[in-house]
Design a protein around this nucleic acid. Sequence first.
DNA 1: TCATAATGACATTATACATGTCAATTAGGC
DNA 2: GCCTAATTGACATGTATAATGTCATTATGA
Lengths: 153, 153
Amino acid sequence: MYNVIMKPKTLYDLVWTSRPLMQAAEACVEKGLAGTDLTVRMRAVLEILLSDGELPVPDIAAKLEIQRQYVQVMVNETLASGFTVQRPNPRHKRSPLLALTGQGRALIDDILQKEMALMTHIATDFTDDDIATALRVVQAVTVKLKQITDEQP
Amino acid sequence: MYNVIMKPKTLYDLVWTSRPLMQAAEACVEKGLAGTDLTVRMRAVLEILLSDGELPVPDIAAKLEIQRQYVQVMVNETLASGFTVQRPNPRHKRSPLLALTGQGRALIDDILQKEMALMTHIATDFTDDDIATALRVVQAVTVKLKQITDEQP
DNA sequence: TCATAATGACATTATACATGTCAATTAGGC
DNA sequence: GCCTAATTGACATGTATAATGTCATTATGA
């Protein structure tokens, strides 16, 4: 009987811990970006280009799940800073592919490496299973919540 | 050797899942508030008053970890809607305690009950241990990240 | 009592997007 | 190949959620 009461409450707490976690993560990333010319949102663009290769703006927007108009602004900033360049898109003449420059690649490589070192450090506090379980639960809960929001009028 | 590489990456994924989770949770809460006169930020005020009892504005701000000036706006909205009332504060004459009205209490009670029913439903997909582990890991990671951000210049 | 802090109120600014529009262009159905 | 509908970049505007600044008033506490 105890669990019937506690389980939903624990899940509730987990869900609402997402905001502090996100804020802590973003603050940490921001600190790691200090000294570079990179902003958090520019970093997001570079990270996608590193993992997915050259992409046009609308595809980046789809990956980030935000409006292409805003991604365009972020992308223009990376272009202005010399972290990316436009390259001809064989599939679309008006929508150039965005590619990392040497400078951009070196920067995002370095940042991700440092961030991963931090993760390695934090990860020592937990077992593999703990972390894997946490990720699995959080991802599944996210999917469930989205389903609930989307179903019915 | 495999784990030495994978563990930080899994933790990294967990950290960045916080944003989709938060957005899904807030969208879900917003849907639950449809039809009421409550907004998400007004709901936050009522939830604190329900769990912590009567509080002055600065104390609510401390709990929410946002600026008191903004909380004042949220609180004024709950006053205007009749969900809260001001009561004399024995500890401070210019800073009245904020208390739930009958209407406010009934509303937040009802909303929290429905939200908890949703949690109960989602929780059936996981074991108690899974959920408890996820919460423990997420909370500990949040604390760690905050420590890293705060230490050193 | 008197300096200092707390408080509510209000104004300004910032961030992170969403939304709307438009001209140019491109892709796809025919 | 042609024509319509969709896509794209560019730009303008709107909005929600805050942070920050300021000020007059009023407590608080040494």
